[in-house]
Each structure stands twice: as C-alpha cells, then as structure tokens.
C-alpha cells in the first residue's frame, strides 16, 4: 500500500494540483483535502500548498489558519505527523505557530519568480532526509511575501539547533534574515519552505528535478520510521 499524502485546497490555493503531481511522481498517493472538512481521510502526511488562500486578506495565511481542516492538522502534526508548508503553506504554518517567525513583503517590494539556488542544511527532517548535507539544488521560487523574519534569539536558536533546512545561495531574493529559505520544528516533522520543490519534479517543466527528494524523503520516513 502506498503512503497517503494529503494536499489541502483552501479557497485561493494555486499549487495544490502541482503538489499532488509531485507526490504521485515520488511514488505516493495524493489525497485531496478540503479546507472546510476536518476529516483528514486517513492520510499519513499533509502538504499545505502554495497560493493565496483567502486572497491573502488580512495577512498571508492568517485566515487559513482558522479553517476547520487546520484544527485536525495542527493536532496531528503536534503528535508527529509529517507536515510540509510550501510558500503560502509556510506562511500558514507560521500563523499557526507550528513554526516560529513570520514571512514579510519582499525587500524589493516586487513579486519575484526565479530559479533559485539553495543549500540543504538539515537532512534529518521528515522532508529532507533524502538529501546529502550541504547539497546544492535549484528549484523555482515565486512569492511576494517571502522575507523570513524572526527575532535574533529565535534565529540563533534555529541555527544552534540545526533547524535551518535550506538557505538561499548567490542571491537572497526577498530579504530573508540569514538567507533562510526553510526551517523545521524541534521534532523535525513540520517543515516550512518558501521555494517550490513541487515545480522541480520533471525536467520538461521545471529548471531541474531537484525537488523530488522532498517528497521521496517523507514517503521513506513513513515506510521505515
């Protein structure tokens, strides 16, 4: 039986089908989850995809955090279920306080879409165990509010505990503190990532296939925990 990975659709989610495709390419079974339904349909892991949930009204992710489906997701993630938030999903994870800090308007004040080089710096999380430590990858980045911000103490703690999952190389595209592109929680099951691994799973449509290990990592961790 293949691993079931839920992909949540909020009103305004855009990359939900892409996340489902990535799960499928990695060998898992993608399960559509609806924001208004608190039933997680027996999934083993969940992805909060990119987009503009609820039109980014109020603040990115601020309304989605209160969706019925998030109640169950927060509960399960607190108990160890792997949970990946990509872009808007990362914003929702910060709003839900599953991850520290916040994502703010890009320092350029422009939306930016580019092929971004990253260095993977944590290979023990549920979503990054398939990488080699220090591995450099190129995946798309596309956001208007992707500047990672936290107070110095939190940033120091993230660094000290090895919870910076990925860092921007060559260009810091959005003014993120300490070039942070993604982080994880203490337990390593919840990961927030600003760039989009689900858009780098086919050489035909992506700049690379460097995004695949994020999805194979979680499938592997669930089969042989």
């Amino acid at each position: 039986m293949s691993v079931r990975v839920g992909v949540v659709t909020f009103p305004g989610s855009l990359d939900d089908r892409d996340a489902a495709r990535a799960v499928h390419i990695a060998g898992g079974q993608a399960v559509a989850l609806w924001h208004g339904d608190d039933d997680l349909r027996n999934v083993d892991a969940v992805i909060l995809p990119g987009g503009f949930s609820y039109g980014d009204y109020l603040r990115c992710g601020a309304i989605a955090r209160f969706a019925p489906v998030m109640r169950t997701i927060i509960e399960r993630a607190s108990a160890g279920m792997p949970l990946l938030g990509i872009c808007n999903g990362f914003q929702i994870l910060c709003e839900s306080q599953l991850l520290p800090g916040a994502l703010t308007r890009n320092d350029s004040l422009h939306f930016i879409c580019r092929d971004q080089r990253l260095r993977i710096e944590n290979t023990s999380s549920a979503w990054t165990s398939g990488f080699i430590n220090g591995q450099e990858i190129v995946i798309p980045l596309k956001n208007g509010e992707g500047g990672y911000l936290a107070d110095e103490r939190t940033l120091d703690a993230l660094e000290a505990e090895g919870r910076v999952v990925a860092r921007y190389l060559e260009v810091n595209p959005n003014g993120s503190r300490r070039d942070i592109a993604g982080i994880t929680n203490e337990r390593g099951n919840v990961v927030g990532l600003m760039p989009h691994p689900e858009h780098a799973v086919e050489s035909l449509t992506g700049p690379s296939i460097d995004g695949i290990p994020f999805f194979t990592s979680v499938l592997k961790s669930l089969v042989s925990p």
Partner: peptide, 14 residues
C-alpha cells in the same frame, strides 16, 4: 518584467 509573473504554476509550462 517577466520575473514578476509566475510562469511555473500548474506545472505544465514547457
């Protein structure tokens, strides 16, 4: 200009 547009969404842009 074009870096302000999302060219990747839907995963079918060749």
């Amino acid at each position: 200009v074009t870096s302000q547009y999302d060219r990747y969404v839907q995963g079918n842009t060749v």
